[in-house]
């Protein structure tokens, strides 16, 4: 670990060029157009995976170039990964639970008991 006092303070602020922000912006707009275009083609279940993949790429672009996480300190990066990690744990455990209970829409408690909707007795 070098002594921070000896370092130049130029790495304290890290302003990127206007061009790099504009390039990132147009990349995001391009991905937005791709998202809409892909959604208009019927790919079945692949549609959702494609949409989520594009959203993740957009997120990476925003996080790296607008939030400049790459130039932020190591601890900031660890915290960002912690957020993803615990989010995945929450989704993973919940899906494990729900997918092993064999519940489907027909056994839903909201479905059958609807007052006054019984077929009229002949």
């Amino acid at each position: 670990m070098t002594n921070l006092h000896d370092e130049e303070h130029s790495d304290v602020v890290h302003a990127a060029s206007v061009g790099s922000y504009l390039a990132n912006y147009f990349a995001l707009l391009g991905l937005l157009i791709i998202t809409v275009a892909v959604a208009r083609v019927d790919l079945g279940i692949l549609n959702m995976y494609a949409a989520m993949l594009i959203a993740m790429v957009k997120t990476v672009l925003v996080v790296l170039f607008f939030m400049h996480l790459g130039k932020a300190g190591r601890l900031s990066r660890i915290w960002a990964l912690t957020g993803i990690f615990f989010f995945l744990i929450m989704i993973g455990l919940n899906l494990t639970d729900y997918s092993s209970r064999h519940m489907d829409a027909t056994s839903s408690p909201t479905q059958p008991q609807r007052g006054g909707e019984q077929p009229p007795a002949e």
Binding site: T35, D42, G44, M48, A51, M52
Partner: peptide, 10 residues
């Protein structure tokens, strides 16, 4: 994430 999840369901 909200945009494709809510508006773009095929």
């Amino acid at each position: 994430f909200l945009y494709p999840l809510l508006y773009l369901i095929s």
